[in-house]
Design a protein around this nucleic acid. Sequence first.
DNA 1: CTGTTAGCGCTTTCAA
DNA 2: TTGAAAGCGCTAACAG
Lengths: 348, 348
Amino acid sequence: MKEPDPSSPLTLKDIARQAGVSLATVDRVLHNRPGVRPDTVRRVREAIERNSFQPHVAAAELARSRARRFAFVMPSGPNLFMMQIQSYLGEMAGWLSARRLAVEVIATDVFDPSVLAASLESLIGGDYDGVAVVALDHPSVRAAVNDLVDAGTKVVTLVSDVPSSRRNHYIGIDNIAAGRTAGALVGRLVGPRSGKVAIVAGSQGLRDHAERIFGFNQVISSEFSNLEVLPVLEGRDEDERSEQMLSRLFGKHPDIVGLYNAGAGTQGVAKALGDSGCEKQVVFVGHDVTVLTRKLLLQGVMDAAISQNPGHEARAAVRVLLSLARGEPILIEQEKIRIDIVMRDNLP
Amino acid sequence: MKEPDPSSPLTLKDIARQAGVSLATVDRVLHNRPGVRPDTVRRVREAIERNSFQPHVAAAELARSRARRFAFVMPSGPNLFMMQIQSYLGEMAGWLSARRLAVEVIATDVFDPSVLAASLESLIGGDYDGVAVVALDHPSVRAAVNDLVDAGTKVVTLVSDVPSSRRNHYIGIDNIAAGRTAGALVGRLVGPRSGKVAIVAGSQGLRDHAERIFGFNQVISSEFSNLEVLPVLEGRDEDERSEQMLSRLFGKHPDIVGLYNAGAGTQGVAKALGDSGCEKQVVFVGHDVTVLTRKLLLQGVMDAAISQNPGHEARAAVRVLLSLARGEPILIEQEKIRIDIVMRDNLP
DNA sequence: CTGTTAGCGCTTTCAA
DNA sequence: TTGAAAGCGCTAACAG
């Protein structure tokens, strides 16, 4: 068995010597560059295999000596979760500059497909090595993503995906599974009581929200026959609107026992819940750990938050873009974003 | 404000020129090496500050050109969780050798303090740059850890800590909080019913198990007065023993509604639960996601698993050892291990 | 198709 | 106390 020689002080030169060729040729083979006779390729490959040779990344990086530029296209609104991602990007400043990496955050109205698409198109030729984008699943956005990819820019979608595009990677959670998790929590925590469940979302037009609700309903309807799901309220992620709609709903249905907030606007949702006077009887599950949801969890108003680690997402996006740009393999396991269940006692 | 110049193509040479000194002097200042006049130090420091200069890690790494050796001291038994950590270390092979890093796994009886201590002592002078150890909190182990640290080796404790030692870092969860989380889950999922709760642990002598149980009791006794905690069963993480003890307990107490397994031996615990015939009425919470607990979660036998991501722990341990060895700052946020709540729908 | 060679930005002797 | 210079292992021109 070929053991990856632990103390491998092997270098390109050693491989070159073993294969009876020059440094440059080994380099060509290593990077699948053209202009090498098939037979030579084979000899070099063999030498590489035989020694399970791994080129020294630091040396490669240094020799390439190219600064990389990445753009992060993010929503311009005051979304707490998105601001957390940006803040974690900020914390990486030192790490980034020690690697000669620059990331620029570009704020855009990601909820308007044409604006977002235009924003992306404008990056073409902007000399970016990679772009991370909180995407909206819409044909024009998909086209813009594909154009970027065709222009040679690496693209990762962040938090919200455009699966039909040719983006190189998606950094975010499986939102259907997240919705299912929320559903299971509401169902289990409500217990044997029967009653109605209210759902608030930003908009069902947003792919992630729609998927969460889909997963939620799936679980409730198949496993918790004691619960009846009420029609989704679309609060547009706005506090006031969410509050008004939900208050009205509480007025109409005194037998609400569960509440699922699939989007933002948590402030308003919590307000409506508080005003309804059934804070303690209603199981309330929402998304993301922010200063607000943290407080609600500690107060016992909120029972659980489904969350995706914003710091992890920020770092994973950068690392993946970097690996893609360098043509290095990605540690999928490391870059996978988990669905976290956060309750009072395991608040991060 | 000093903005970290994004396109910073600044090098040591630039700083040297600005400060009116040579490369070597800047390097000395950068690494706090002696032999530089205080005044010169100041000038250089200023130039560095002024440009918020960050040395290029790849260049530094290459120039240093030193292979690093790390040792992972892990339990020799057939513990699924520990095997997962080792397997993730294995997956990093390519990543490691591309950075000229070697990690060796050393299996030891970590449950015997003297054996573990001896094992650690034997690493002194073994030319290791860093050691990760699944530690047992015992005076002789503490001494061994301190000896290693004194010998210049960086030490991180993994999964199980020795807080009183001078280990450089702990990679693992807060076990009290983990126990609290388990308690809250059991309490919430049991609902309004009253009854008894059984606890199984490997040994209360193990710090992590003891802490989990402490946290668990804390929550149950203060918030779930409908539940009565039974004396802890010590199953030594062995399937058979755990099964026997638990079966006996089920026989004695027909009103058990909750079950918390703070350690391993899950196979036996599940068996006893199944045989008792109250699989469906008893809320069962345990630790770690393994092939076994995954199956139990899917079957609905287990309701939740409190878990610490073994892949993350493996990678974090390596990264932290590396940063410590290089004297680079650690991204604490990135290396912090979270307490994951895993239920059927958010299984990783 | 293949080889030679000049760096990349830092570290580390060795002199001064 | 300081500086000059020789690499570290790889990449990318440029020659052949």
